[in-house]
Write a protein that binds this DNA or RNA. Sequence first.
RNA 1: CGGGAUGUGGCUCAGUCUGGUAGAGCGCUGCGUUCGGGACGCAGAGACCGGAGGUUCAAAUCCUCUCAUCCCGACCA
Length: 583
Amino acid sequence: MSMRFSRLYAPTLKEAPRDAEVVSHKLLARAGYVRQLTSGIYTFLPLGLRALNKVAGIVREEMNRAGAQEVLLPMVQPAELWKETGRWEFYGKELLRFRDRKDSEFCLGPTHEEVITDLVRHEVRSYRQLPLNLYQVQTKFRDEIRPRFGLMRCREFTMKDAYSFDRDEAGADASYRSMYDAYTRIFRRLGLRFKAVEADSGSIGGSFSHEFMVLADTGEDTIAACTSESCEYAANLEKAEAVCVMAECGEGCGALSRVATPGAHTVEEVAACLGVPASKIVKTLLFDVDGKAVAALVRGDRELNEIKLKNALAATDVRLATPEQVQQWSGAPVGFAGPVGLAVDVLVADHELCNATGMVAGANEADAHVVNLDMARDVKAVRFADLRSVASGDLCPRCRTALTLTKGIEVGHVFKLGLKYSEAMKAAFLDEDGKERTMVMGCYGIGVSRIIASAIEQNHDADGLMLPPTIAPFEAALIALAGKDAAVLARAEDMVRELEGMGLDVLFDERDERPGVKFKDADLMGMPIQLVLGGKGLERGVIEAKCRKTGTRTELPLDGFGDAFAAFRAGVWRAWGLESPGR
RNA sequence: CGGGAUGUGGCUCAGUCUGGUAGAGCGCUGCGUUCGGGACGCAGAGACCGGAGGUUCAAAUCCUCUCAUCCCGACCA
């Protein structure tokens, strides 16, 4: 397929819109791929849509190869289904709700577990119909509290979501594995540098999950990965297990006593005031957890991980206590809470504090702390759990090598759901023995529109986008520097047809523009291959080829162009870490 | 929902402090010259200064309210 530049609706901008902050948003807007309509909602222009469709195409191929079948579920969903699983109440404000003319309640689908489970429970009755994996590429709507980062965190976005139904755990595990493998193939084919990591399963629920992260410094998520060559451990920071190096037991210390620490609220201030390292301080953080007062303790030099706290308490809502609550529970302003004599419902501490002695903690009164705190001796009714976030250099929970932290953008997520939805919605079948059993589910998402943004976050330079050949709207841009030279234009036309014959999508820049303008536009738009045909080149029988990613330029002979180009093209694909283009 | 910022031709911005009736660059239209890395000259078109109310002889500018967008935080595939 080819397109003439003069007819392409791709309004490029010399300057990025004021509101664009992240690189991908700036460049997508400048290159004429997308326009923002309102906060978190974008229009896809022809180039953007072509890229989106290229990604979706690869996703479809690999999903189909893995045995999944495509469907299209409604975006508007009735409240009844959501009430059945309890998510009408739990999903919160992110679920955009509205009423129709008959005053019935509906929502815009942020995800489709309810709808798919409803479909399948009506149609699947026998073990013979399982396993089943259905997927769709759909527009989702999530009324994010704060959409941001352009296409990275939208309210309206394109997602591929798949749902598997199996007769038992073993089957569900096989489906999960199959999707995990399909995702690995998909992201490889897309030419992205990515990593699969263990993840918290969040509000979707379920027993275990992996996220697929595109590695980019601008990512919102932090990944903890093992640095050992032989170990594959990698996890989202929310999930990464901390290895507890226990303090030596029975070291003993003097009696608990109170000391004045005027104005020392933070760990740093207390450490400076008393001349102790932060690791000898017990940081006491107060939370309102489902309405209960909770104190969570971690070492002063550690960061509390709220997700871990939430999971440790099997809670649904965790929020930091307000200053008023802190005053009420600890009897002191923020900064002076400590585990001794604290009026809270639940006291949890990180494993690391289990045998700690000689610690410093808040005294639960203004401007005072206690010293010589022995956790085992002085703190009663405390539970221990993994509460802290791992830090760079911490030990890998698998192999005890050092961990490293990197940033990533979540572009895919596979969950093993288990029985959560099938039980709530009674999705059951009869097995060989005529016994009724509940289906075991999994769900698998890919952020299709987010992939475009993440590809750019990962690949761009001062001149514009650089897109992998599998994502770019056109694999090649052919620039004809014709001027008044009709021969150049005619030869370029022939070349477009030849390239199409080789299976390429070509953007043919036949505009009567100055060369500089055409070069700038081509670089900005990021097509992986640029071909430049000019009058002088035509005389000499050559055409210039440039790889957008590496900047490499080569002259290819017009005589025998096909073979020369095929070799050049293969080199471009290799530069992207991709296997040679199939037809 | 807290904190911060910004709304002025299509785009990026100046003008606001110190009120006097709107500017620049880019883009756009026409003509001419130019033509391998966002050319140049000449001539044009294009703005109820986010909205409402108020103060004033006079408001883009001062006051009040409001809407929108962006950033940080809380939150979230």
